[in-house]
Simulated assay, not measured.
Amino acid sequence: MDIRKMESLVAIADHGSFTKAAKAVNLTQSAVSQQVHELENLLGVPLFSRDSRPPKLTRHGQAYVETARAMLALHRTFLETHCRSEVKGTLVVGTVRSALTGVLPRALRTLKQSFPNLSLRLINSGRLSNDLTQDVRNGQLDAALIVGPPAADDELVWRAYAMERFFVIAPADAPGTTDADLLSAGPYLRFIPNLPIERRIDREIEKRNLAIVPEMELDTFESILLMVSAGLGTGVVPELYIREAARDRIRAVPFGDASFYRELGVVTLRRGKKMALVEALLSALVQPAAR
Score class of each variant (00 low, 15 high):
291 R>K: 11
114 S>M: 13
159 R>K: 05
89 G>C: 07
290 A>K: 09
271 R>W: 02
37 H>A: 12
224 I>L: 04
46 P>T: 03
199 R>F: 07
43 L>V: 09
29 Q>T: 07
103 V>A: 10
86 E>T: 12
220 T>I: 06
262 R>F: 05
178 T>K: 15
274 K>V: 11
74 L>E: 09
13 A>N: 12
286 V>G: 08
10 V>F: 12
235 G>F: 02
64 Y>H: 14
289 A>M: 12
40 E>Y: 00
11 A>F: 10
157 V>R: 10
20 K>G: 01
84 R>A: 15
144 A>H: 13
193 P>M: 06
2 D>C: 01
200 R>F: 06
177 T>L: 05
104 L>M: 06
43 L>P: 08
48 F>V: 15
167 F>D: 14
288 P>I: 06
10 V>R: 02
8 S>C: 04
45 V>S: 15
219 D>R: 07
92 V>I: 02
183 L>A: 08
42 L>D: 10
102 G>R: 00
173 D>C: 09
286 V>K: 11
37 H>I: 01
222 E>R: 09
274 K>N: 12
138 N>A: 01
66 E>D: 01
163 M>C: 10
21 A>Y: 03
222 E>H: 12
152 A>P: 01
287 Q>N: 01
78 F>I: 08
180 A>Y: 00
104 L>V: 05
100 L>K: 02
97 R>D: 02
105 P>E: 08
261 Y>F: 13
200 R>V: 00
148 G>I: 15
